[in-house]
């Protein structure tokens, strides 16, 4: 398993634990008489859906998709690392941002970072997709 995949999986595990803890607090709150602040629900959703499920899928895809022969096999490694870091910054901002900026400024920035991370990851993984699924990327014609 490549090092970056290990990082993806470790980060996914961290978010799963954090997300499930937030969910457990929300589920228990009425019975134990605790009021849970509103920012816990978006944190729960963000951590579990993007931090855990999406990141796990990315880590496995980076590891398991067929490698191509032309370079080191897994594409542009710095780009893949940048995508990983950007995505994680995005999940942290989108998940915890409501606590700091209730108007939604930081979460919006976080979602933008998640999008950038996902685009970076997709560009890097594109050439490793089977040709029947992914046509080769071509530069746009100059008009």
């Amino acid at each position: 398993m490549p090092r970056l995949s290990r990082w993806f999986l470790c980060a996914a595990a961290f978010y799963l634990l954090g997300g499930v803890t937030a969910g457990a607090l929300m589920l228990s709150a009425p019975a134990i008489g605790v009021t849970i602040p509103g920012w816990v629900l978006p944190l729960h959703i963000e951590f579990v859906m993007i931090g855990w499920a999406v990141q796990l899928a990315m880590g496995i895809a980076y590891w398991i998709l067929p490698r191509h022969r032309s370079d080191h096999g897994r594409g542009n490694e710095p780009l893949a690392w940048a995508a990983f870091l950007t995505l994680n910054a995005g999940v942290l901002l989108a998940g915890t941002g409501w606590l700091i900026t209730p108007a939604g400024g930081l979460p919006a920035l976080g979602h933008g970072a998640e999008l950038l991370g996902a685009i970076g990851f997709a560009i890097n993984i594109w050439r490793r997709l089977p040709r029947s699924i992914a046509p080769p990327l071509r530069p746009l014609p100059i008009l």
């Binding site: 499930v20 969910g23 457990a24 607090l25 589920l27 228990s28 009425p30 019975a31 134990i32």
Partner: peptide, 12 residues
């Protein structure tokens, strides 16, 4: 309502 904290703890 009382069994939900047990459910939450088990899943965690």
């Amino acid at each position: 309502a009382a069994i939900l904290p047990i459910s939450a703890l088990l899943q965690l």
